[in-house]
């Protein structure tokens, strides 16, 4: 009887989806997987972040407007989560690996939030990760003085502790909804 009850409860939990508010991509996007270099110069894969709720964002350090805006907003989001935020990581993936070395990325992401990690790697590895989440990035023509911009995905991809893609936060999403969904995911264990 106890066993049956436990089984029924387990089944029930599985069948009840989390009431997520952002664009729900559960089951529609692949699990977090990549082979890149972190901002300390260490080779890392998606598996290194299992157990953490991951916020994946593509950007580059020579982006003075939108990338800092997004990272500043994510910093506020993390502050609103309080101690729970320790269970989350912001992964800032450089779409400009030529200029973004691990050292540059480290000072850049640390200027925003301690739970942010900069990732870079060979252009093909970054492209593979970008394509995996159906996004793309394009290096724009040189401005004439050697500087250039890179167009990139505006979305933040959120993964649960098991590395499963769960929600997508677009620029029009509210911070309240992102905080709400992160609360749900941070309060859920990896095996549920």
């Amino acid at each position: 009887m106890v066993l049956l009850g436990a089984l029924a409860l387990g089944g029930c939990q599985r069948a009840t989806p989390l009431p997520l508010r952002l664009t729900n991509i559960t089951g529609h996007m692949p699990d977090l997987d990549f082979a890149l270099t972190d901002d300390t110069g260490k080779a890392v894969t998606g598996a290194d972040y299992r157990g953490k709720v991951v916020l994946l964002y593509f950007g580059y350090t020579h982006c003075p407007d939108v990338c800092p805006l997004t990272l500043a907003q994510l910093h506020v989001t993390m502050q609103r989560l309080g101690a729970l935020a320790d269970g989350a990581r912001i992964l800032f993936v450089s779409v400009d690996p030529t200029r973004d070395t691990p050292a540059i990325l480290k000072t850049y992401v640390n200027a925003f939030d301690q739970r942010a990690v900069g990732l870079t790697g060979p252009p093909r590895a970054v492209e593979a990760l970008s394509k995996r989440y159906r996004s793309a990035f394009t290096r724009e023509p040189d401005a004439g003085d050697g500087s250039y911009a890179v167009s990139h995905s505006s979305a933040i991809y959120v993964f649960d502790r098991a590395g499963r893609a769960r929600v997508l936060a677009t620029p029009s999403a509210t911070q309240d909804d992102l905080v709400h969904d992160l609360h749900l995911l941070l309060n859920t264990q990896a095996d549920s």
């Binding site: 800092p68 805006l69 990272l71 500043a72 907003q73 910093h75 506020v76 502050q79 609103r80 850049y108 200027a111 925003f112 939030d113 620029p171 029009s172 999403a173 509210t174 911070q175 309240d176 992102l178």
Partner: peptide
């Protein structure tokens, strides 16, 4: 600073084109 949301405490917040709200540090 890098993670500032606006001109600062003595200079009122600017509305932004982004939907996400700002809570101040």
């Amino acid at each position: 600073p890098a993670n500032a949301a606006d001109a600062g405490p003595d200079r009122p917040a600017l509305p932004t084109t982004h939907g996400a709200g700002h809570n101040h540090d």
